[in-house]
Amino acid sequence: MLESKFVETIVGLFVALGVAALFMLAMKVSNLSSLGEDGGYDVTARFLNIGGLKVRSPVKMAGVVIGRVKDIELDRQSYEAVATLSLASKFDKIPTDTSANIYTAGLLGEQYVSLDPGAEDTFLKDGDRITLTQSAVVLEQLIGRFLYQKAAGDEG
């Protein structure tokens, strides 16, 4: 049997290394350091079509991530998609006439909600609704419309 003190030191080192590895995974590999899930306030936005938007997709303003999509549901009366956006509480000066658009990062990248600030003096509060929205661009629809126009153009 090895000397007890030596073994205990080595085991202590081993445990410390393991915890350090976990800590490194938490801080450097995952998104713990950026935008926490605590606090923040929720606003809703209605879209005719959300395309490939998912829960946890980023919400950006001027390209900066200011929140995440918290929940997506279908309104059973109006057949619109209702997206709940959770915004970080430090971004609390967002005008009520801000518009929400669904854009795609890159040609085939993930989709995100982009907020374009309006000019009102009143600001969005928890539970408010963003009324100005623009649906996601569905690539198939776009191609279909393009081909249709092209065909029509060739005939005329």
Binding site: F14, A21, L25
Partner: peptide, 16 residues
């Protein structure tokens, strides 16, 4: 039980 999660965490960290 104590060693396994620590070893797995080190494996992942070193692998990254």
């Amino acid at each position: 039980i104590i060693s396994m999660p620590l070893l797995a965490a080190m494996f992942s960290a070193v692998g990254v």
